[in-house]
Simulated scan of single mutants.
Amino acid sequence: MPIDQLLADLPSVLLAFVEDQLSNNEADDDAGLRAAFVAAGLTNAQADVALSQRDAYLLGL
């Protein structure tokens, strides 16, 4: 899956966290996941970009 440039610049550990959450976290709604991303160190813009790809990750595209 192509990664947006805002996310591609993240440290690999943080990017792996984001991708894991996008692929596997079905418990949190978007607001909860966004808060987790920001708490982990993403900017608001990066969190929004990540969330825009959530459906694709959950479907394994």
Rank of each mutant, 00 (worst) to 15 (best):
M1T: 04
M1P: 07
Q5R: 08
L6H: 05
L7Y: 09
L7V: 01
A8W: 00
A8L: 09
D9C: 06
L10V: 08
L10Q: 12
L10P: 12
L10E: 14
P11A: 15
P11N: 13
P11Q: 10
S12K: 13
V13Y: 07
V13Q: 14
L14M: 11
L15H: 03
L15I: 02
A16Y: 02
A16K: 11
A16T: 12
A16V: 08
F17W: 04
F17A: 02
V18H: 03
E19L: 07
D20S: 11
L22G: 06
S23D: 06
E26T: 13
D29T: 12
D30E: 15
D30R: 11
A31K: 14
G32P: 04
L33H: 04
L33T: 04
L33I: 04
R34N: 10
R34P: 01
R34I: 00
A35F: 02
A36L: 11
A36Q: 15
F37E: 08
F37I: 07
A39Y: 00
G41S: 04
G41A: 07
L42K: 06
N44T: 05
A45K: 09
A45N: 14
Q46L: 03
Q46E: 12
Q46A: 02
A47K: 08
D48T: 14
D48G: 12
D48C: 11
V49T: 13
L51K: 13
L51E: 14
S52N: 15
S52R: 13
Q53P: 01
R54F: 08
R54Y: 05
D55R: 12
L58R: 15
L58P: 04
L58Y: 05
L59V: 09
L59Q: 15
L59G: 07
G60L: 13
G60W: 13
G60S: 09
L61G: 14
